[in-house]
């Protein structure tokens, strides 16, 4: 499946998007652990622990545009057709 990377995560992985294997029924956590195995520089950017069981605060993972914290977190099941997007903390607007 396609995993899209944004902002500093792009720079860390050296790519805008990654193709990661995902079988139907596998969870977001499994896919993300496969992703960091492919791009080791991402591990510390995304996960809070070496085992890859907890996300860093403010790192946002979206499945088809829905933040997994509003789904089932890292246990959110995938069918492999979704698009996963990963963001480091971002904010902005404009100040006027």
């Amino acid at each position: 499946m396609r995993v899209l990377l944004y902002a500093t995560l792009r720079a860390a992985a050296g790519t805008r998007e990654a193709e990661v294997a995902a079988a139907p029924g596998e969870t977001v956590g499994t896919v993300l652990n496969r992703l960091v195995a492919q791009y080791p520089a991402l591990r510390d950017e995304i996960f809070d622990d070496p085992e890859g069981t907890a996300l860093k605060p403010y790192v946002a993972v979206y499945v088809d545009g829905r933040n997994i914290v509003h789904l089932q977190g890292l246990s959110t099941p995938l069918d492999g057709t979704e698009e996963v997007a990963l963001f480091p903390p971002v904010a902005g607007g404009s100040g006027a």
Binding site: Y6, T8, A60, Y62, P88, P89, V90, A91, G92
Partner: peptide, 24 residues
Amino acid sequence: AVTAPNKGGLSLYGTNVLMNATNT
């Protein structure tokens, strides 16, 4: 993690770091 100079998303990419996020 947002404002840290040369590290945070706002510092590195400016306010326009939001374009891809809101689009997502």
